[in-house]
Design a protein around this nucleic acid. Structure first.
Lengths: 324, 324
DNA sequence: GGCGAGCCACAACCATCAGTTGGGCGTGCT
DNA sequence: AGCACGCCCAACTGATGGTTGTGGCTCGCC
């Protein structure tokens, strides 16, 4: 099916004459007639009744019209979404189930008119995301540059929102029945966080977290997929993992896993947004405003070195647990 | 843009290989390659990065993919909507702003998965609607056959729901400040109902109404459009019209028109549904059930002769007002 | 009734294009 | 190195979408 034919049909239906539609589309009347004819042959229905003063929709044509409109608006949106220069707001997220994507989805649901495209840069190094922002391939990225000195002058990085961590354990785990946990209670328990790329900001986050609280965080090893991870957790009596409270996961119903919030201090992964300093995409402002409407975190919060300067981050020398 | 190319793109993106997509679509791999290439040329972006083991979406490709999916689902829905035999539920209504259309729209909003097509048969005579139902052009129609004897045996007509009438007047009309009105209060006031087709069931409805309550209903004359009617009503001190309480109208904000319910008895236009007795469209049942959930009418109701047998209709000899 | 004005469909023609077959190149695995 | 795999390019061909020219139909006007 040719979308130009569909477009011709819609205009002809609206204008009531093939000739006008043809003039508007810059082709001859015969061309439009042919387009409609092929469309009718393809669909095996008559769309118009031809009269002496123009064309009139048949019942099938009436039924087809809204669908046809839907198709061409879809085509137009698709084109504007990727047209170089003036295209839809394109934001890079780490994964489609991450808190970043969830927050963007929430935003889009309350602003469905936004032309928003969520993509995933398939690289580990945040500097690649910075380069993509500089090159204009993406309008913004949720990556974090942990060392501010390495951030080029022509891109900005701001704090977007925090993603508080929760412990995810199976029913046989000794901490499974806790309602909340403090970081020091996690000590000596094995925490497995697979799929963390070696030089990424997440690796550094877990590194600092393990150091500050003396935790056993195993971030090595390949990720065999969420299903495998969840299977292992469900069966294991000593392995747990950490997930963001806003992360979206598919829970197989028979797994009986528990999410346990961590408090005193809350462990917050700070999501940042990277975007060009000059001429950022106009749609970004509303997104950034949306971050402010998210439920804030409680008082005591631990963040890594590059997070916003909370009390916790400033007093980095503070020991959070009893001395080893 | 060719929707088959879009479909190929989607399948290739999902399968990760042009070859698999080609096999699935029943064409050669080269054909799919060409389709993608022309799509890329048309959109002026690269959609895939070609690797040794297949293809991988670029950022533009990622952005395009959901739009492409949207397009082909739109195409598929359009095709199923008009495919002879197994097509969407198609119902004929008198006008897109009528109570019938509003109720259908309400139903569709609460059941968005329904493939529902609302069309308008461009004929006056209800027998044409019956013929269209018999021929299978439409699955159901909201027309009413006023004489049951003329209804063919192979179509059924059931009572759908009632549309209670309200008086629509401008601010200068003597009845403008009433909160409710009884039919006898309308006597001697001029009621103008333009656009009623001569031999239609609406003409007969107003005829019986005028007779039973001794009203001055002027149903002749062409309809110049709602705007004209509303303009006239807004300015006039003696012309009023009748509208269904569920009818949807565009109110110009400056017109200051009032809708005044009519009670004791409520004047109900009975909406009927005509559909084939044998093998009605399976989606019809849910629609008919939906009618039952509409807010019922009060006790005292006047209906025309072909409405359901209320007390009012049975005692047709009853005089509703003082004798002339 | 005759006639012109509009409008759409059909016919003939042409350029383009989508699809096929056949071949070549790069990559990764054995 | 050799093979398997997957993609692209080239050449060919039938189909198709576009054009111009023409004919049939209905409506309105003289």
């Amino acid at each position: 099916m040719d979308t130009e034919a569909v477009r011709s049909f819609v205009r002809a239906a609206e204008l009531g004459q093939l000739r006008h539609a043809a003039d508007e589309l810059g082709v001859t009347q015969q061309a439009v007639s042919k387009r409609i004819a092929t469309l009718e042959r393809e669909l095996d229905v008559r769309l118009f009744t031809r009269t002496a003063r123009g064309v009139e929709l048949t019942l099938d044509g009436q039924a087809f019209l809204p669908h046809a409109r839907n198709i061409i608006t879809g085509v137009d949106r698709a084109i504007t979404a990727i047209r170089p220069g003036s295209r839809a707001l394109r934001i890079d997220v780490l994964g489609l189930r991450s808190a970043q994507a969830v927050v963007l989805h929430d935003y889009w649901r309350s602003h469905p008119e936004t032309d928003l495209d969520v993509v995933t840069l398939k690289v580990n190094d945040p500097r690649m995301a910075v380069a993509a922002v500089q090159a204009g391939d993406i309008d913004a990225s949720f990556r974090s540059v942990t060392d501010p000195a390495t951030l080029p002058r022509d891109v900005r990085m701001i704090h977007a929102f925090d993603s508080p961590l929760e412990l995810l354990v199976g029913p046989r785990h000794p901490l499974a029945s806790a309602r909340t946990l403090t970081p020091s209670q996690l000590r000596r328990h094995r925490i497995w966080v697979p799929g963390i790329a070696p030089r990424s900001e997440w690796a550094e986050f877990y590194d600092q977290l393990a150091t500050d609280f003396d935790l056993r965080i195993d971030a090595a090893g390949p990720n065999f997929g969420n299903e495998v991870l969840l299977d292992i957790l469900a069966d294991s009596a000593d392995v747990a993992t950490l997930v963001g409270s806003r992360d979206r996961y598919i829970w197989p119903t028979n797994h009986d896993l528990r999410r346990i919030p961590i408090v005193n201090p809350t462990l917050a992964y700070p999501l940042s947004l990277i975007f060009p300093r000059a001429n950022p995409h106009p749609g970004l402002r509303a997104i950034i405003n949306h971050f402010g409407s998210l439920t804030p975190l409680p008082e005591t919060v631990w963040r890594p070195s590059w997070g916003p300067n909370t009390l916790a981050a400033r007093n980095r020398s503070t020991s959070w647990g009893p001395p080893p």
